[in-house]
Design a protein around this nucleic acid. Structure first.
Lengths: 134, 134
DNA sequence: CCTAGTGTATTAATATAATAATACACCATT
DNA sequence: AATGGTGTATTATTATATTAATACACTAGG
């Protein structure tokens, strides 16, 4: 994916109540999972993004700081940012996406809305382990 | 489910960063979805819960205020709280749970952790319509 | 070295949310 | 009406998170 198009990956919603930097973090992880960003891929500069998205450069930087902590991106002062070669986030296998789509379809056919679906999954994930982690 | 056992439904984590009242809201919705709370079912009183869970009564009340707004519970001053007969939250059909469990199993077999699974679903839900928007 | 491009540490301003204390409102039973 | 149980509006405190401004740090290329 050409660097110029990467900016189009981001769809920020400033009135959703979800912090901008978190939206950035999530959307980058998702882009990698969907195969839209590859390891070694260079990202647009903090200032380019900040200008294009009309937000403060530090907000971008904060998002990337978190992503670096999680070993997903590498930041290089004076150079730029790129998807880490050893990124912990990787593209999701097709069978997984397919299984998910099947599940979502069935859930929607039974009138579950998005929030209910998220809650159900959350429940499903926490039940696996007896007692609560998190 | 006997009222005395309902308190056991709640597993609050005061150090998770997730607000207590939101944990209560989510856990009640989940309990209904899992069939552990039924329509018309009476809930323990605000003060009983507050004492058992070691939190302020107003925190319980806040959670229930939200659930009433969403037409899930009914609150009756001087009487108590109960699951609304017309509750918008309903038990999830078995086929849905099964499909979900299948999906979770496959995802975990492919090394997705809980956070990745949640992000994936979130992505899956936001990409509603495949096709042209031209 | 100088410049113009990278990213960022520090700090401050803002915004907002979460929790709790209090006193009050409502209801059923006597 | 008195009592003892319900829930709650109001208010204040606290905590904390988010965003932004500024000045600084690093790098590549001329």
């Amino acid at each position: 994916m050409p660097e110029s198009k990467i900016i189009d990956l981001f769809a920020l919603n400033t009135s959703s109540g979800i912090p901008i930097y978190r939206q950035l973090v999530d959307q980058i992880k998702q882009a990698i999972m969907m195969g839209m960003l590859e390891k070694g891929q260079q990202l647009p500069s903090v200032r380019q993004l900040a200008k294009a998205l009309q937000i403060n450069p530090m907000t971008i930087s904060k998002a990337f700081a978190q992503l670096e902590l999680e070993k997903i991106l590498e930041r290089r002062r004076g150079v730029g940012m790129l998807v880490a070669q050893q990124s912990k986030q990787t593209e999701v296998p097709l069978v997984v996406s397919e299984s998910m789509q099947k599940f979502i379809k069935i859930a929607q056919q039974h009138d579950l809305d998005n929030e209910a679906i998220m809650l159900l999954i959350q429940q499903g994930l926490s039940v696996k382990i007896e007692g609560n982690q998190s």
